[in-house]
């Protein structure tokens, strides 16, 4: 997996950024902020996903259009009537509102897509291992077991088929369901017996006898402290500067654009800017050779 500069930062930095990006993205319905959010999230998403990201962005565009067009059907208030359908007004204000809602949803989905790429399970457990030690251990183990169980389930399926016990491809649905139930039952047996062995092994190695320590692969560097402070300061600034209010129906009322928007953009562009800085530094170091 290709790692970008921001993914290489400490998980706390990543987490704080996404709390802000997703939190603001979900609440602010000011059109300028929504547009800024969409652009920043889309650029970073493409940076993370490469060419594959375009497919998702296409889907997001469709979602945005759908949400915009459908909102006036559910919300009929507003002064400027574009046309009437079955005697109901289709208003401009509601259309704008739909566009804002659509972009909020798009921003959220894109940031969550980035979150899934950046804040992987190991980072999550490194971050929350101290607060919820037992549950984060459970999470780590589940994440390991899911692929293992999937493999085992396939093995059982194939083995049953090989001895002629499996359901035929053209069989009835009940037959297939019964076959599936037997496989699941066998898988459960195997998994539960294994779980007892795992648990006994954990106990004999001293699980639960003392404080659980964590293997910490992530260290806070000077850069991470700087980014943490910067992100926190920008997030507080966005809240304090305000100017994010906007209401659409029954009348358009949108705050004038102020410094808050610039601060918001700076916040959202941090991951991308970090990557750009990294690329430039890399080019310079190559050209020096």
């Amino acid at each position: 997996m290709r790692r970008d500069a921001f993914s290489g930062c400490h998980p706390a930095v990543n987490f704080l950024f996404f709390v802000g990006a997703i939190g603001f993205g979900a609440t602010i319905q000011h059109p300028a902020y929504c547009a800024a959010g969409c652009i920043a999230a889309a650029v970073y998403y493409l940076l993370l996903k490469g060419r594959k990201g375009f497919k998702m962005l296409g889907g997001m565009a469709v979602l945005f259009l759908l949400m915009s067009a459908l909102n006036p059907l559910l919300n009929r208030s507003g002064k400027h009537v574009l046309f009437t359908w079955f005697g109901n007004p289709y208003t401009l204000e509601a259309l704008y509102y739909g566009m804002a809602l659509g972009s909020i949803l798009v921003v959220m989905l894109l940031w969550f897509g980035c979150y899934s790429e950046v804040l992987t399970s190991d980072k999550f457990t490194a971050l929350f291992g101290r607060v919820i030690p037992a549950l984060s251990l459970v999470l780590v183990m589940v994440l390991r077991m899911i692929p293992a169980f999937t493999r085992k389930a396939r093995q059982i399926l194939l083995a049953r088929r090989a001895i002629g016990k499996g359901a035929s491809q053209t069989g009835k649905l009940t037959e297939k369901a019964k076959d599936g139930a037997s496989v699941l039952s066998a898988l459960t047996d195997w998994a539960l017996e294994g779980s007892i062995i795992t648990a006994d092994s954990m106990r004999s190695r001293g699980y639960g006898t003392g404080r659980r320590t964590n293997f910490q692969i992530f260290r806070m560097t000077a850069r991470d402290y700087f980014l943490l402070a910067l992100i926190l300061a920008l997030e507080i600034a966005v809240i304090l500067l305000g100017g994010t209010g906007a209401s659409f129906t029954p009348r358009l009322k949108i705050d004038p654009i102020g410094w808050g928007l610039a601060v918001y953009c700076l916040l959202l562009w941090i991951p991308t800017l970090l990557q750009i800085k990294e690329v430039i530094a890399w080019r310079i170091s190559i050209s020096k050779i």
Binding site: A134, L137, V138, M141, V142, M145, I146, F149, L184, L187, T188, A191, L192, G194, S195, I196, T198, A199, D200, M202, R203, Y207, G208
Partner: peptide, 15 residues
């Protein structure tokens, strides 16, 4: 939670 309790919960979630 004891090891057994924890592991069984894990196995059931994974299943």
């Amino acid at each position: 939670p004891q090891a057994r309790e924890l592991v069984i919960l894990t196995v059931m979630a994974a299943l």
